[in-house]
Design a protein around this nucleic acid. Sequence first.
DNA 1: TTGTACGCGTTATCAA
DNA 2: TTGATAACGCGTACAA
Lengths: 344, 344
Amino acid sequence: MQQTDQTAGRRRGATIIDVAKVANVAVGTVSRYLNGQTIRRSNREQIEQAIQDLGYRRNAAAASIRTDLTHMIGFLVPTFDEFHARMLEHLAHSVRQTGRALLTYCHGGDPRVVAEALDFFAAQRVDALVMDGTAEVYDRVDDLIHHDIPIIFYNNDVRGLAADRVMVENHRASHRIVSHLIDLGHTRIGILTGDPRNSSGIERLEGYEQALRDRGIAIDPALAVRGNWRMDGGYQATKRLMSLEDQPTAIFSANYGMAIGALSWLKENGRHVPEDISLASFDDVAIFRLYEAGITAVAQPVASVAETITDILVERLTEPSGGATRSVVLECDIILRGSTRRIT
Amino acid sequence: MQQTDQTAGRRRGATIIDVAKVANVAVGTVSRYLNGQTIRRSNREQIEQAIQDLGYRRNAAAASIRTDLTHMIGFLVPTFDEFHARMLEHLAHSVRQTGRALLTYCHGGDPRVVAEALDFFAAQRVDALVMDGTAEVYDRVDDLIHHDIPIIFYNNDVRGLAADRVMVENHRASHRIVSHLIDLGHTRIGILTGDPRNSSGIERLEGYEQALRDRGIAIDPALAVRGNWRMDGGYQATKRLMSLEDQPTAIFSANYGMAIGALSWLKENGRHVPEDISLASFDDVAIFRLYEAGITAVAQPVASVAETITDILVERLTEPSGGATRSVVLECDIILRGSTRRIT
DNA sequence: TTGTACGCGTTATCAA
DNA sequence: TTGATAACGCGTACAA
């Protein structure tokens, strides 16, 4: 009693062996066909027919157990906000063209989830891992590296690891945009800083400070208020900034989330941008183009970052492994809009 | 000459067999330990020690070849815009708590890429597939279903397939928000429709039309302009709407992307919202809370959608398979803001 | 070019 | 509870 029914819910589908039987060839031949090698024409047609008839689908897991290649890239981020979503979109696009896909994990800032994600990726044997660096993961990432899983950091670096890096010029871009504020006559410039555990947070703050120093403006610690990259942090930080006796005439936000929080507080409290206060922000997002007269911002080259990551990825996965780690730093654009104005 | 060096770049890591050897137990025992079954205490300690010493990491692919379970959920979307990104964030969160992760693919509306994605998911043997439905995929998705891969549609349905569905009340929510515009005295209400190949596009348009009919307002085909869900489509559609001889006094956008395009055109052309024209939109996004007096919108229960999907997922993956497909429809909230005003 | 047979790392079965 | 061993589906030497 042979079971040839293909409509029933048989969990196990046809295998390469079934295909070989039906096509009257050896399994090796089918395997070679699947991997695009040259096959005698008559055999090929029979194999294709058999695959069709059986509804055969290759089992990537079984292949990966032999080849140690899963065609999956791990992607680990703290959150899917607009910045990371754009990153994901571009990365998914360029990675797809190499025949791979992204296995995504979102840790929400919880170190335990980060550890969990890293374990998961290791077990799944992802071909490589792209992640926004966070300080606490040093040991576990180092572990992955020793297991020969290439790591590529973006947005935030973790120093000292044998990983590749694709960053943007945080320091320089911040320096430029703050310099622009100074050019407009501002001397009391507040900054909404990100998390100091993140390299980008540190670099953007340093760029701000350096710009002030370069123009002989004293750094007032009260003007640097710590946010948390998020809207609520920017809201609270702006509130603190605006309750100073000597208020700032301009604010630079280290990312777009906090800038939106700032706009939110300013609006609620009847302060107009740029009449009452100038605002500039890192990250250029859709809302900045549309909001009132537009928000002056640092535009990160998200597409280039994604492409560079993919290039490095391909290199790592094709080259005979090893080789020095690469560290790429990309330039940002400053987009001047209506939220920054000259003061007397 | 035994090779015990763990620093070198040996591509192949320690296996369960190595662990068994070092721990002086059988592989079956190690396997049971790894799967959380009860193990004699002394053995467990030895196994843990061996795992530690060898830097052993489980190979999920090898396991899945036996169990037919990969702990990966396919996630297929047209794009990672704000809506889908929020969906991803929530879904990643709830799926993570079941010990799974999302294998994401972004097709950008290209049918070939959709087909490619479906093949990829099939080869990778994802435990299930969550996708925003698109019309052209009927056959290929049907194929996956016959291969016993559970499918869950969200946002847009594809009729006739044996899949689960988690949707929102597109018709009713559109009906309500358009009724609100009518309550405010509007009778010439334009609509920026989405793609008619998407079920949500159709339903939102039908809700709009039904609302007009219910109040005895004639439907003017010229007032329904087709967008493409995107900003540029909304921009163009608004332009057409506003060049009618008998202009609308209110516009309802079938999604947020087109609404932003509309705002963009209105702003460029000096039309003020809501003084010159009222605007309401499907989807509630961050910018709608902040933009001028706020944009009246339909808020989809994104978190609930994600949770419902995960519930169904867990059910499908634990229950003895089979069982009728579920179709859940969730309610939306109407958020009234300053972009809609009463006219005389 | 094709066929055979073994190995990959894990789970599942079954007897002890 | 444990140990021994047969699958699982595929890739790949090796011999033909």
